[in-house]
C-alpha cells in the first residue's frame, strides 16, 4: 500500500488469488469472504498478506534480545524447547487482552518443554516492564527488543504477532493479532508430541 512500507512475516494460508484458475471464481470469492470475516488481511508490496507462512518452516531469525537484567540472549540458546515468541508492547491494547491467555498457556505446558517468550517493544525501562509483569501475573520470560531489527528480521507489521517454534528452532506457525489459549493449545500440543 502506498505510504506504508512494511514487510511481513505472515501470509495467507491459502493464497487464492495467486492460483489462476481460482482467480475471480466463485470459490475464491467465497474463500476470501471467509477470511475477511475473521482475519486481518493487508496488502504489502503488492501482495496479499495475513497470517501464516513467509517465515514458516524457516529457522528463527538470528537476533539478540535484552534480558530485564541488562544481559543479552539469543533465541537460539533456547533450542530444544517449544517456544511461543510473542511480540507485544505495554501500549498495545490488543496485546494486553492476549496476555492472560498466554499466562494460562505457559502455566499449562511449561513442565512439558514449552515456554512463552514475550518480546516487549517500546515499553520503557526494565523496572516498568517488571512492574507491569507483576500487575499482570506474567510469570513467563520477557525480553526487550528494538523496533527496527524486529521489523527487519521478523517482518512484524503489527502487534501482537506471535511465532510458534519447534524444538529444532524452526518456525511452524505464525499468528497475527491476539490469540486465545484455546486456539493455540492444539498447535502447541502437536509440537510437543
Amino acid at each position: 500500500m502506498a505510504g506504508q512500507r512494511i514487510g511481513s512475516g505472515c501470509r495467507v494460508g491459502i493464497d487464492a488469488h495467486q492460483i489462476p484458475a481460482f482467480r475471480g471464481s466463485e470459490m475464491a470469492m467465497r474463500l476470501l469472504k471467509l477470511f475477511t470475516s475473521w482475519t486481518l488481511i493487508m496488502m504489502v508490496n503488492g501482495t496479499l498478506v495475513a497470517s501464516a507462512t513467509t517465515l514458516n518452516a524457516k529457522p528463527v531469525p538470528e537476533m539478540l534480545f535484552e534480558r530485564l537484567d541488562g544481559s543479552s540472549l539469543a533465541l537460539s540458546a533456547l533450542q530444544g524447547t517449544v517456544l511461543l515468541i510473542n511480540f507485544w508492547g505495554t501500549w498495545c491494547a490488543p496485546c494486553l487482552k492476549e496476555i492472560p491467555e498466554l499466562v494460562h498457556l505457559s502455566r499449562q505446558y511449561k513442565t512439558r518443554g514449552f515456554e512463552v517468550v514475550g518480546i516487549a517493544v517500546n515499553s520503557g525501562p526494565p523496572e516498568d516492564i517488571r512492574a507491569f509483569m507483576r500487575d499482570h501475573q506474567m510469570d513467563y520470560r520477557v525480553l526487550i527488543g528494538e523496533m527496527s531489527p524486529i521489523k527487519r528480521h521478523f517482518r512484524v507489521v503489527g502487534f501482537p504477532t506471535s511465532f510458534l517454534v519447534d524444538r529444532h528452532g524452526i518456525i511452524r506457525h505464525c499468528y497475527f493479532g491476539p490469540q486465545t489459549e484455546e486456539r493455540l493449545k492444539n498447535d502447541v500440543e502437536s509440537l510437543l508430541e
Binding site: 486481518l40 508492547g89 501500549w91 498495545c92 491494547a93 490488543p94 496485546c95 487482552k97 517493544v121 517500546n122 523496533m147 521489523k151 512484524v156 507489521v157 503489527g158 502487534f159 501482537p160 504477532t161 497475527f176 493479532g177 491476539p178
Partner: peptide
C-alpha cells in the same frame, strides 16, 4: 502516535 486497527497495532 500509536495506531491500531481491529485487533492489531502498528509500531509506534
Amino acid at each position: 502516535a500509536y495506531v491500531c486497527a481491529g485487533s492489531t497495532c502498528a509500531p509506534p
